[in-house]
Design a binder for these strands. Structure first.
Lengths: 262, 262
DNA sequence: TTGTATTGGA
DNA sequence: TCCAATACAA
């Protein structure tokens, strides 16, 4: 028996909007610790990792560990039927091959339940080692999204270079080249507007922009985004989910010697 | 060496949005006087004329007259990467075949530079004689845009008739006919809401509506539009650019005896 | 709450 | 290619 009651149901809606374009099918893993997901994107290049800790739920009952395979597009379709202020309760009976989403309007005047078939999804649960990163950049999530979108109108790849002074995003394409420099900047009115660079070693890595533009679908989840970089390691783009956990995206850098795939 | 610093960068963004659909490639001409462009539309029927006077720039350095050929779609793409509050600086070194757009965010925390290749563009710099017009109509630019859009759902051509009382826009098509009359009207709260008709002689001219619907892309540049008409002369549709200059569109009237081109 | 920007559809 | 509906920002 599984029953998870999430008062701020919009969080789950946003999470699905953020990952459904990247991952089509995935297993949600429930344990006493929380509700989590780990999946490769459909092209098997990027990794998505979601954690919603049990403490973040108003009610969290998970009798035994369970893994539920879902089609994320279908799940997103159902969650779209929940109001943004609705309380969402996720239920599954032991041994059932379905999951039920219940939506309660704030006034309790409208109660909906949507039942969705579960599916078998191959899961390769990759252990992600905790790593020390050469550089960690925190910046407003909207600004990061804007930069990724702008640069992708010029080129296909982005070079992210971090120095003490700040972080530089560069690209080049047929019509020209572009560089966007964000200076470290902590003297802002609101702390979420700050751009903070923690750097142990300068680092400069190249990535495919199209994945970044998928990652930035996570923007509605948090005002800030954290980008962790080390040479040779996948970059981590993390959106904190208030009081509950995080949504993280991992993407391996392009190696210089790589030819452009076309 | 060329360096033009425009504090209100959104102006340049709007200018490019206004002309990029009409003209694909054009030469920007820089002289001590200002930054200007003159180009025929791709079907060689309408003429676009832009002037941004040097006094309107915060900093204007143009060592020698220079003509820079640009693909306006590519230039618009790059300018879209500037924030609306950004300061835009346009730079070109002597003899260089590229131009650089620099965008500074208001807080100076984000500095971007975009480099674009220049191109050779055939330019036929037509002298546009200053003319006396039979009638000059000034009206709210949004109203003019609305009329052009509305009429183009009925017919392909518009007859603009100016009398002392006001201006009439007429069209007819398969499904019927339409007349929109705007009366001279200066008793309004805001001066930009006025419709003013200066008329020496009544005039009635016919134009292809599709060009007018391109011209009205200039609407964001100014609250008012000025339409200058004389029989036998191209109409001038002018959007003033505050403190800097203007964007003008010229279109020859259809002659009554003309068959419909199709 | 309004106006604007973006996205999806015709 | 253009327009409408929607989502977002001011």
């Amino acid at each position: 028996m599984l029953e998870l009651r999430l008062v701020q149901g919009s969080l789950l809606k946003k999470v699905l909007e953020a990952i459904k374009d990247l991952v089509t099918d995935a297993n949600f893993d429930c344990s006493a610790t929380g509700f989590s997901l780990q999946a490769m994107d459909s092209s098997h290049v990027a990794l998505v990792s979601l954690l919603l800790r049990s403490e973040g739920f108003e009610h969290y009952r998970c009798d035994r560990n369970i893994s539920m395979g879902m089609n994320l597009n279908n799940m997103a379709k159902m969650l779209k039927c929940a109001g943004n202020d609705d309380i969402i309760t996720l239920k599954a009976d032991d041994g059932s091959d379905t999951v039920t989403f219940m939506f309660e309007s704030p006034t309790q005047d409208k109660i909906s339940d949507f039942e969705m078939k579960l599916m078998d999804v191959d899961s390769e649960h990759l252990g992600i080692p905790e790593a020390e990163y050469h550089a960690i950049v925190r910046m407003p999530s909207t600004e990061f999204a804007r930069i990724c979108k702008d640069l992708s109108s010029i080129g296909d790849t982005v070079v992210i270079s971090v120095t003490k002074e700040g972080v530089k995003f560069s690209t080049s394409g047929d019509i020209g080249t572009a560089n966007v420099v964000c200076r470290q900047n902590t003297t802002v009115d609101k702390p979420e507007d700050a751009t903070i660079v923690e750097m142990n070693e300068p680092v400069s890595l190249t990535f495919a922009l199209r994945y970044f533009n998928s990652f930035t679908k996570g923007t509605p989840l948090s005002n800030t985004v954290t980008i962790s970089l080390s040479s040779e390691l996948p970059v981590v783009v993390e959106y904190k989910i208030a009081e509950m956990g995080h949504l993280r995206f991992y993407l391996a850098p392009k190696i210089e010697e790589d030819d452009e795939e076309k």
